[in-house]
């Protein structure tokens, strides 16, 4: 049994002119515990919608989503919210740190919604997590006094502080330079593998995607497994080989990948 399992999931919205916009179509994917999966695709292809569905922030229009074998559709809103807090950690492109709160307060914020020992020990747990991401000396620093890389590390610490089963990273390096982005991904990979959490990364950075064990490409709402030829110079001319013969992709042009 996979940790996450989407089967023929669609997501549609009705536009003001009453037309239906199909954002996701027949998405089928499974993610196991401890696995790192990357999803690439250009803007507007439904990457974030897929991530929101995976993270229980949104619900599929049709199809089935099993979380540890439990159909999500059968859970109440409250139960979904509680599972989201307990089982998922989010890392956003713009960090989304809470303004006016120190790094420590930001990291301990998710623990305000925890129970028992996690709740009562939230300050200690947050400090330990900041230490773990290398910011033990910045606990009382406000986000606006931190560099981009440091802010993202705070965001990672915040995503991991409740010990989630799944880390959902939406363009985690999108606002960082290449070097800092690499460091952040090293950290994310390292902590995810140490904690056994599954890591689902949405990115248009192929170097980031290449770190994953499996890669998918989302195009026009359709999710396709791909493999990146990591032995070639794919940062410039990206060779992509689709696994499905019916959806053969020879390569994803720069303009499309980096959009």
């Amino acid at each position: 049994m996979s940790l996450l399992e989407l089967t023929d999931v669609t997501r549609s919205v009705r536009l003001p002119d009453d037309r239906l916009l199909h954002i996701l179509q027949g998405v089928t994917v499974a993610v196991d515990a401890g696995e790192h999966v990357a999803i690439v695709g250009r803007s507007g292809t439904g990457k974030s919608t897929l991530l929101n569905i995976l993270g229980l922030l949104d619900a599929p229009t049709t199809g089935q989503y099993l979380l540890e074998g439990v159909p999500i559709g059968t859970l109440s809103n409250g139960a979904r919210t509680k599972r989201r807090g307990r089982d998922f950690g989010f890392v956003f492109q713009q960090f989304n740190l809470l303004p006016g709160r120190t790094a420590l307060e930001n990291v301990s914020a998710p623990l305000l919604y925890a129970r028992g020992r996690q709740f009562w020990s939230r300050t200690r747990l947050a400090a330990e997590m900041l230490e773990r991401v290398g910011l033990g000396d910045r606990v009382d620093t406000m986000p606006d006094k931190l560099s981009g890389g440091e802010q993202q590390r705070v965001a990672i610490a915040r995503a991991l502080v409740r010990g989630p089963r799944v880390i959902l990273a939406d363009e985690p390096t999108g606002a960082l330079d290449v070097e800092t982005g690499g460091e952040v991904m090293d950290l994310l990979d390292e902590i995810a593998s140490q904690t056994g959490a599954a890591l689902v990364t949405i990115t248009h950075d192929l170097a980031v995607a290449a770190r994953a064990e499996r890669q998918y490409r989302l195009a026009e709402g359709i999710l396709l497994p791909i493999s990146l030829d990591t032995t070639s110079e794919w940062m410039g001319d990206v060779p992509l080989v689709a696994d499905r013969s019916s959806h053969t992709e020879r390569r994803l042009p720069d303009a499309e990948v980096h959009a």
Partner: peptide
């Protein structure tokens, strides 16, 4: 901020 807190598991 409210959205971010909802992502932490804050119920409505």
């Amino acid at each position: 901020e409210i959205g971010i807190r909802r992502s932490f598991g804050a119920t409505s």
